[in-house]
C-alpha cells in the first residue's frame, strides 16, 4: 500500500489505484479541515447563531399537485 512496504511495486496499476484512493481521501480530509477552519473563523468573528438550520430551507414549495392540495384541504 505504501512505498516502504516490501510488496510495493512502482508500476502503473499501483500508481492509478493508490493515486486515486489517496486523492479521494485527501479531498475529503481537506474539505473537513476547511469546514473546521471556517467554524473557528465564525466563532471568533462574533457571528450570530440562526435558529433555522439548512433542514428548514424550502426553495421549491410549489404545491401544485393533487395530492398536496388534498393534504392541505383544498379538495375537501
Amino acid at each position: 500500500m505504501l512505498p516502504f512496504v516490501f510488496e510495493w511495486q512502482w508500476d502503473i496499476g499501483h500508481g492509478v489505484f493508490m493515486g486515486l484512493f489517496y486523492l479521494a481521501l485527501t479531498i475529503v480530509s481537506l474539505g473537513v479541515v476547511a469546514a473546521l477552519a471556517m467554524t473557528f473563523y465564525d466563532l471568533y468573528s462574533g457571528k450570530e447563531v440562526h435558529e433555522e438550520g439548512h433542514g428548514h430551507e424550502d426553495p421549491w414549495a410549489d404545491y401544485s399537485y393533487a395530492h398536496d392540495k388534498a393534504d392541505r384541504g383544498e379538495y375537501a
Binding site: 469546514a35 473546521l36 471556517m38 467554524t39 465564525d42 447563531v49 439548512h54
Partner: peptide, 16 residues
C-alpha cells in the same frame, strides 16, 4: 444546534 460551535460546523459543512 443551539451549541454555536456545532451550529457553525454544520453550516460550513453544508457550504462546501
Amino acid at each position: 444546534n443551539k451549541v454555536p460551535d456545532l451550529h457553525f460546523f454544520a453550516h460550513n459543512l453544508h457550504t462546501i
